[in-house]
Amino acid sequence: MKSTAFSHAERSRGIRAARIMGIMLLLVVVLFMISMNTGVIRLAPLDVLRTLSGSGSDNQELILFQFRLPRIVMSLLIGAGFGLSGCMLQGITRNALAEPGILGINAGAGLVVLLYVSSHAVNGSVFLLPVLSLLGAGAAAALIYGLSYRRHQGVSTIRMLLVGIAIAAGINALTLVLTLKLNPEQFTYVQTWLAGSIMGTDWRFVTALLPWLVVLLPVAFAKARILDVMNLGDFTATGLGSAVQRERLYLFAAAVGLAASCTALGGSIGFVGLIGPHLARRLVGPQHRQLLPASALAGALLVMAADTIARPFDVPTGIVVAVIGAPYFLYLLAKSRN
């Protein structure tokens, strides 16, 4: 009888989560449509529809297909990637404050991109950036993981978070010193990139980012059950037959890959991996089978909304996200302290 009641409750939660994710997906579509009409040069809804059907002017086709649509698609992909990465990191560390920017993963990726820009032209290969970013993020992640590891104890999640914050501070300081030595053109490019800008995006950026997400998103979704087991604690998870340290390493690598590829092509946009999973957890609950896709949708909504707001004012998207994210982070800190 109890088992039947539990199954019914579980089914009800699943249906509710599916409905909420359906609403979130609908909001993504609506925001996508609104974003196509928004910019320094406004396009009326009828103009957008005519242009999509092939009846727009050359000017309208240039604005929509070459400038606006690539940027909107990039903001969607970057938001989903950061949201999913943050959700995985929070599951690994069992800490709601964990996210790629706070752990120093974005900083490591950014440092290597900065070194590349300082030694090459700013218009270097777009397709090389995710690889270089992954190397930087991977090095930072390896350092964090290595310093968090203790023999016979494995990786302490609290230690991982604290080490990540310290590594991020050190890398950001080094980045600042190197930035001051750039020439004016490189300095402008790096500063815009560090602010989290999706400006100047074209379809090459979408093509460079999409394969990374296509590979890593299914890996993340396939590990939903492992993340649920990890939430029970290392001792319980080991007792249930899970190889905790090995699985944590796999998940950490996948989260780093997602964050690094998004950082390389979208800039250092912080707080998305923090806010997206937290909002998703409130809406669909803690089970990762629903939480992972909901976090991706929440991250996509956040970055798309920030980019839509930023575009008419020609400011970096990351600044708008920071305006939203910084107070929310302080709220979470106060809540966790209480």
Rank of each mutant, 00 (worst) to 15 (best):
T179G: 10
F6W: 12
F313Y: 14
R204N: 15
S57P: 02
F67M: 13
L97T: 03
S118V: 08
C262I: 14
L69A: 09
N95A: 02
L77I: 03
G104I: 04
A294L: 07
Q153R: 13
R337M: 12
K223W: 14
L297I: 07
R50N: 08
A334V: 09
A44V: 02
Y149G: 00
S12P: 00
G233R: 08
S119T: 15
I15N: 05
W203L: 13
S148I: 00
K181H: 13
M74Y: 10
L302D: 08
S3C: 03
V126N: 06
S336W: 07
I165Y: 08
T317F: 03
G276P: 01
L292K: 08
G266S: 10
G110L: 13
A121S: 15
L213G: 03
P45M: 08
T188I: 04
T93A: 02
G276K: 04
Q186V: 06
L128N: 04
A139K: 05
R150C: 00
G14L: 06
I309R: 03
I171F: 02
I158G: 01
T4C: 03
L274H: 02
E247G: 01
N183G: 15
F205L: 01
F235T: 06
G56M: 05
Q90C: 03
R337C: 02
V122D: 07
M36S: 03
M304Y: 09
M36N: 02
L64I: 05
Q245F: 07
G110H: 05
A322H: 06
I165G: 05
L97Q: 01
A208W: 08
L143C: 15
V219L: 15
G138H: 08
T263F: 09
E10R: 15
I15S: 02
W193R: 10
R311A: 07
L213E: 12
A166T: 02
F313D: 00
L213M: 09
N123Y: 08
A18G: 04
S133N: 01
A260M: 13
P218A: 11
S55H: 14
I275N: 05
G146H: 13
L64H: 11
F271Y: 12
G56K: 05
A259I: 08
L209A: 04
L114V: 09
L176K: 07
P70E: 10
R19A: 15
V272N: 02
G325P: 03
V30W: 01
A141Q: 02
L174S: 09
R11L: 12
A18L: 15
V122M: 09
G79P: 10
F235C: 00
V122F: 06
G14D: 14
D47L: 03
A140H: 05
L180W: 06
V303N: 01
V315F: 08
R94E: 00
L129Q: 13
M160L: 15
G164H: 11
A141D: 03
R68E: 14
R337L: 14
T4N: 08
G101T: 10
L176A: 13
A168E: 00
R50K: 11
H152A: 06
L332N: 13
G270M: 14
L62D: 06
T157D: 07
A280Q: 07
T4V: 12
G146W: 11
I309D: 00
V73C: 07
A260L: 12
L217C: 15
L115A: 13
L297W: 01
E61F: 04
A44S: 10
